[in-house]
Nucleic acid binder design. Sequence first.
DNA 1: AATTCGCCCTGTCGGC
DNA 2: TGCCGACAGGGCGAAT
Length: 296
Amino acid sequence: MPELPEVETIRLQLAPRVMGLTIRDAHLSLPRMLEVGQIPEIQALQGSQILALRRHGKYLLLDLGRGLIEKTLVVHLGMTGQLTFHPHDQSANDEFVTLVSGLKKSVGPHHVDKHTHLVFDLEGGNRLYFRDPRTFGKLLLLPFANHGESPRLKKLGPDALGLKRQMFVDRLWARRGLRSVKSLLLDQSFVAGVGNIYADEACFTAGVRPQKKLKRITQKEAARLADAVEEALVRGLQNCGTSFSDYVGADGHPGSNQEFLKVYGRGGQECIQCLRPLKKATVAQRTTVWCGSCQR
DNA sequence: AATTCGCCCTGTCGGC
DNA sequence: TGCCGACAGGGCGAAT
């Protein structure tokens, strides 16, 4: 489940490898991954260069064009999306082959399987693959000039990484009400990039119960949440992302942040602070883990 | 207007 | 061994 740190890891790994490369050919094998009617536009990308890689929240934005940026390919990895770079000179690297398909061994001569939905043939024999077993991901091709007006991107709040504490607190304060802290953290129009894993981790670090109503949150707790979100995301990024199931970086390797998670996926196990068993329940339609003693 | 719910989708896992 | 239901969940559109 790629959240901000996973998408940023991919962006950082991908940028030096694909920047400036020309797209020789594009193959979209599962059309429904793309906005309807855009298949001809994908074909038309032949000859375009990858000119910039940006990210907002969990969205990766590839700016494409011939010299000047003309279009933006918006990529959302959903639950199990993978974006991997396959360099021409490492095509025989066995380790790479075994890791590229989720965390399992991949079969097939070209590292492509039935879940590889988009392939960019880049100049020099390099390739870029988009793979997504559960197909919750999305591809969207927009004119660069007005891609900011896209309904999908327009509703996003400020990017969660590097967001000023006071801005976070102010936005939370403006939404004080009956909804839960966790519901707000998952709301991409509040801040963009936080998903289920980092929301739970942030709540634990802040000492706040995920189901606590926003109207009962103090300024102090809001500030702690702001810091805890930043801390969780930065740590995730430092560890190249959390590979709980399918996530791999652009190099095909899993991240290591799953080894450092304090609560996510640890329901019933002992709290790292007080050693009491962690609680698990559904909050805001998501599986949620917290410590009933350390989080109030 | 704000919030919740059902749905999309497939691989994995536990129970029988 | 194999079948089957439960589960994972981001975001959208429908319902409340």
